[in-house]
């Protein structure tokens, strides 16, 4: 296959002859994107992946130039996940260890991957499970490393690499909890074992499509230090409030304020003398559910913990792409 679309979403075909990569943020063919701003982005790669895992039927349309051993030049067919030999999720960035909090100080509405931000700091959004977020419970990666088993949307997957943008050399507060975006994980797992309730296509008006995944990572309590760090509470985790109307797009590095997750989850945060309503993009209630499922699986002997074969890079910084001339 040289070109292929699944449910009209373009897949990458520059690999082995009949293998495809489907990207979660790929738009559907002919999606007007932000031409009529703000676009709706109703359907894309994330939605196709959710349908696949739910066992729904999908349409494959593929083109090829034809060779002596692969003569077929065009294929249009329907399939489900059961018709595939392998369906593997390969996800290069998950479980961001802390993340910034978004506001908009400008006088017009903006649309971001942290949702719609009302003008004049009319709302504030964040995305982390805080005290239940895996890497915030193992802040210097003592047990979570490359090769660690993870609960990935119901499948037993594993960490295959540090995630993209993994940045371990950051400002840390008490107990080495990062005070800004820090480590990330690259995860993989068998989609045939996944549960569609934990793999959800999402649409962000004015921004695009993506996927929301349920992830749980067990942390073995091997000594007092590991135990102490898993007792982290929302009040101990601080995040940076960033102005997404100017400082984020212009990369000024300016931080408007810092807030802790206990305050964020209360629903109202006071910064710069103003009370601002808060909302989350990640689901704490789903995180609780996953923690219970994983706990039961471990107790029943259905999920075995293992030792990572390589640690995550402990002292790594991040750089932006070089600007064009």
């Amino acid at each position: 296959m040289t070109e292929a679309w699944i449910d009209d979403v373009l897949a990458y075909s520059g690999i082995a002859a009949v293998d495809l990569y489907l990207g979660a943020t790929q738009l559907r063919h002919n999606d007007p994107a932000n031409i009529d701003y703000p676009g709706e982005f109703k359907f894309g790669g994330g939605h196709v992946i959710e349908k696949l895992i739910r066992g729904e039927e999908l349409q494959l349309f593929a083109l090829s130039y034809g060779t002596d051993e692969y003569p077929l030049k065009e294929l249009r067919t329907k399939f489900t996940i059961d018709d595939l030999n392998q369906a593997t999720m390969v996800n290069p960035r998950n479980c961001y260890q802390n993340y910034n909090v978004a506001v908009n100080t400008s006088n017009k509405t903006i649309y971001t991957y942290l949702g719609k931000l009302k003008p004049n700091m009319g709302n504030m959004t964040y995305s982390s499970a805080g005290q239940l977020s895996p890497l915030l419970n193992d802040p210097v990666y003592r047990t979570i490393g490359i090769g660690s088993s993870v609960w990935l949307a119901g499948a037993q997957g594993h960490v295959y690499s540090e995630g993209t943008q993994h940045t371990s050399a950051v400002v840390r507060t008490a107990n080495q909890v990062p005070a800004e975006g820090a480590g990330t994980l690259a995860l993989t797992g068998n989609m045939k074992e996944m549960d569609g309730d934990f793999v959800r296509g999402v649409s962000f008006k004015g921004y695009g499509v993506s996927i929301a995944l349920g992830v749980g990572i067990p942390i073995p309590i091997l000594d007092e230090d590991i135990l102490l760090k898993t007792t982290v509470r929302d009040r101990d985790i601080r995040a940076q409030v960033i102005d997404y109307s100017i400082d984020y797009p212009m990369e000024t590095g300016k931080v408007l304020a810092t807030v802790n997750y206990e305050t964020l989850k209360s629903g109202i945060v006071n910064i710069l003398g103003r009370d601002i309503e808060t909302a989350s993009l990640s689901s704490y209630s789903m995180a609780l559910k996953i923690a219970e499922i994983l706990k039961a699986q471990i107790r029943d002997g259905n999920f075995l913990l293992n030792k990572p074969y390589q640690p995550l890079p402990p002292n790594q910084s991040m750089k932006a792409m070089k600007a064009g001339k």
């Binding site: 709302n123 929301a212 309503e277 808060t278 909302a279 993009l281 990640s282 689901s283 209630s285 789903m286």
Partner: peptide, 10 residues
Amino acid sequence: CTSCSNCLTH
């Protein structure tokens, strides 16, 4: 609904 809570401020 996944209870992400993004609706709350809207």
